[in-house]
């Protein structure tokens, strides 16, 4: 069996649910208690990307910032993929989405990036459809760490891109 290790980093404002997404993906649990992440937590999970091919995702859960440029440079070393998370219910977390995404795609042009609107369980699908332009950039996924909607799909899709 082929097995590779890939480092991915979750970025985004504080309180958007980065840690919850990881916990849902790795442990299949969710708690609505908010615990602020400081620094970085690192978790690992193996994902099957093809028959007889697994990839070990080293997931870096970074402390949330309101300015992406403040992210400690050492954390970003050797990153294979980014997940940028925002909270669909809190405009403060997606007001600068376009700038942040432009920054990442300029700085890390070759690194795959997924844009994720989390907490989608708190709004209706119609709301997301009607307000598609509100976010400035079209997100790749609308997830819910609470219900698990699209969480596995998000990580698996990225993992498959990383081993291509």
């Amino acid at each position: 069996m082929k097995k590779a290790s890939k480092k991915i980093i979750l970025l985004g404002h504080f309180g958007v649910g980065k840690s919850s997404l990881i916990r849902q993906f790795v442990e299949n649990t969710f708690t609505s208690d908010y615990k602020v992440t400081i620094g970085v937590h690192i978790l690992k999970k193996e994902v099957e990307v093809a028959p007889d091919e697994n990839v070990s995702l080293i997931i870096w859960d970074l402390e949330g910032y309101d300015d992406i440029k403040k992210t400690r440079a050492s954390y970003l070393l050797g990153t294979h993929g980014f997940i940028y998370v925002f909270d669909v219910t809190r405009p403060a977390t997606f007001e600068n989405l376009k700038n942040d995404i432009d920054y990442l795609t300029n700085q890390y042009a070759k690194t795959p990036l997924k844009i994720v609107g989390n907490k989608a369980d708190l709004v209706t699908k119609t709301y997301l459809k009607e307000n598609a332009n509100m976010f400035g950039v079209q997100p790749n996924f609308f997830t819910s760490a609470k219900t698990g909607t699209k969480v596995d799909e998000l990580f698996t899709t990225l993992a498959k891109e990383l081993v291509k």
């Binding site: 400081i38 620094g39 400690r72 070393l77 050797g78």
Partner: peptide, 26 residues
């Protein structure tokens, strides 16, 4: 000890001495 150390060696240039600090790692 932690998945933090997985794949770390890939960060370094083997041709010279390296010194990197990471802060606030759980």
């Amino acid at each position: 000890v932690s998945p933090f150390f997985d794949g770390l060696s890939a960060y370094f240039d083997l041709e010279e001495d390296n010194d990197i600090k990471f802060t606030c790692i759980h």
